[in-house]
Amino acid sequence: MSNGTDENRLRTAVVIVTYNSADVLGDCLRSLTEGARGVVLADVVVADNASRDDSVGVAERAEALPITVVQTGRNAGYAAAINAGVAALDLDALDAVLVLNPDCRLRPGSLAVLAEALRPPGRGIAVPRLVNPDGTLQPSLRRQPTVRRALVEAVIGGTLAGRIGTLGELVTDPVRYEAACTAAWATGAAMLISAAAWREIGPWDESFFLYSEETEYALRAADRGWSLWYEPSAVFEHIGGDSAVNPTLAALIVVNKVRLFRRRRGRIAAAAYFLAVALGEGVRALSGRPTSRAAVAALLRPSRRLRLIAPPPAS
Rank of each mutant, 00 (worst) to 15 (best):
R143T: 11
I156H: 01
A81I: 10
W226P: 00
I16P: 00
A64R: 15
V255E: 07
P139N: 10
L100A: 13
T5I: 03
A244V: 00
A186N: 09
I164D: 00
Y217K: 10
K257F: 03
I201R: 03
L91W: 02
A87E: 15
C28T: 12
F208C: 03
L249C: 05
V235Y: 02
E231W: 06
L41I: 06
T5G: 15
I239N: 08
G165V: 10
E213C: 13
L29F: 09
D223H: 10
L286R: 14
A218H: 03
A22D: 12
V58M: 00
A84Y: 04
I16Y: 04
A80V: 09
L306N: 10
R305E: 14
G122Q: 04
E231P: 00
A190H: 01
Y217H: 13
P203A: 06
A186R: 04
A50N: 09
P121F: 03
L210Q: 11
W204T: 05
I125N: 02
T159G: 08
R61L: 12
S233W: 01
P145E: 06
C28H: 06
R74Q: 08
T248D: 05
F208P: 01
G282Y: 02
E178V: 11
A234S: 13
R9C: 02
C104T: 12
L275N: 07
G135S: 09
E216A: 14
P247Y: 12
A154C: 06
D92H: 14
S287L: 13
T5L: 12
L260W: 04
I16R: 03
A50G: 04
L219D: 05
R289C: 00
I125K: 07
V45C: 06
T18K: 12
S2F: 11
L167M: 14
N49E: 08
A115K: 00
F261K: 04
V99A: 10
N101G: 04
A64S: 15
V296G: 01
T291Q: 12
G73C: 15
V99T: 03
A294E: 06
D90P: 01
N75Y: 03
D205I: 01
A251M: 05
G157I: 12
L219S: 07
Y78T: 10
I268C: 04
E237M: 11
R74Y: 03
D53A: 12
L300W: 14
D103K: 12
V131G: 03
P121D: 15
G135I: 05
L286G: 11
V45E: 04
E7Y: 05
R142K: 13
A154Q: 01
D92M: 07
P139F: 08
V58K: 05
P128I: 11
E214I: 01
G241N: 10
S303D: 15
T187A: 12
S292V: 01
A47P: 06
A93M: 08
A36R: 03
D48F: 04
V171Y: 02
S51F: 06
A196N: 11
V113N: 01
L306F: 02
D95S: 07
I164N: 04
G280V: 00
G109P: 01
L228M: 14
L10W: 02
G26W: 04
G188N: 08
C28I: 06
L141M: 14
R123C: 00
W229F: 10
R284T: 00
R105W: 07
G124V: 08
V254C: 09
G162L: 10
P145Y: 03
L25R: 08
I239G: 05
A126V: 10
L286N: 02
L91A: 07
N101H: 14
V296M: 14
L25T: 07
W185Q: 15
Y230M: 01
